[in-house]
Amino acid sequence: MTEPSDRRADLLDRVVTYLQTHGIADMSLSPLAAELGTSKRMLLYYFGSRDALLSEAIRASRPDIADLFRGVDDAAGLQEAALALWQAITRGRQQRPIRILFQVLSLAPTQPERYAEVAAEAVTGMVEPLVEVFERLGVPQDEARARAGLLISGLRGLCLDRLVTGDEDRAEDAARVLIAGATTLPPAAAQR
């Protein structure tokens, strides 16, 4: 017998797949439920509301920055983890899920009542774990926050450019320059 938590996790996984294909702008629970072979009532039972479901799907689909940067203890490891993030969002397992994040971020300015909070959470959820990594490497808090924001927002923007233009070479070159600059530790931190 399937446990409720297993059923919920399976539904969430399938919701993420659905959103990758159909988008979020016009997401309605009834067509989503029909596509997933369940009912709107069951989606509400497991997730509470459309917005709560969407928030969880976005959280489940974004890269796990804490995991990607776990164990980083020097500038070389930081650069390697940043390159792994770039690979994940452009060619790896995050290539399709990152599109959900792009949709949410593009909807937040025009529909803030529905998407601003979840968009802000998605950005913060990727930046904050990286701030901690920079601080652990000896970068002062304000600079750590700036570098984490630069790295995450810069790579996300380059990934979007790559998707829109198809110019993979330019995006790849720009990502490498961005990563090199953002992961070069200041002298005081590098001496640690």
Score class of each variant (00 low, 15 high):
M27D: 02
M27E: 04
M27C: 15
S28P: 05
S28L: 15
P31F: 14
A34R: 12
E35N: 15
E35Q: 15
L36D: 06
L36R: 01
G37S: 12
T38M: 06
S39L: 08
K40L: 07
R41T: 11
M42D: 04
L43Y: 10
L44N: 15
G48V: 05
G48Y: 07
R50A: 15
R50D: 09
D51S: 12
L53W: 03
L54N: 09
S55H: 02
S55C: 05
S55V: 02
S55A: 15
E56C: 10
A57M: 04
I58D: 00
I58S: 09
R59P: 02
A60G: 12
P63E: 14
I65L: 06
A66S: 15
A66F: 02
L68F: 01
G71Y: 10
V72R: 03
V72D: 03
A75G: 09
G77R: 02
Q79I: 02
E80Q: 13
E80V: 04
A82M: 03
A82Y: 03
A82W: 04
W86G: 05
R91A: 14
G92S: 12
R96A: 11
R96T: 12
P97V: 07
I98C: 06
R99A: 11
I100R: 05
I100V: 15
L101P: 02
Q111D: 13
E113N: 11
R114G: 00
R114Y: 03
E117N: 07
V118C: 04
A119E: 00
A120I: 00
E121M: 01
A122E: 08
V123D: 04
V123N: 04
G125Y: 04
M126C: 13
V127M: 12
V131K: 01
E132K: 08
V133R: 02
F134A: 00
E135Q: 14
R136Q: 10
G138F: 05
G138A: 11
Q141N: 07
D142Y: 02
E143H: 09
A144S: 12
R145M: 10
R147E: 01
G149M: 01
G149L: 03
L151T: 04
L151I: 06
S153I: 08
R156F: 07
L160D: 09
R162M: 11
R162D: 06
L163P: 01
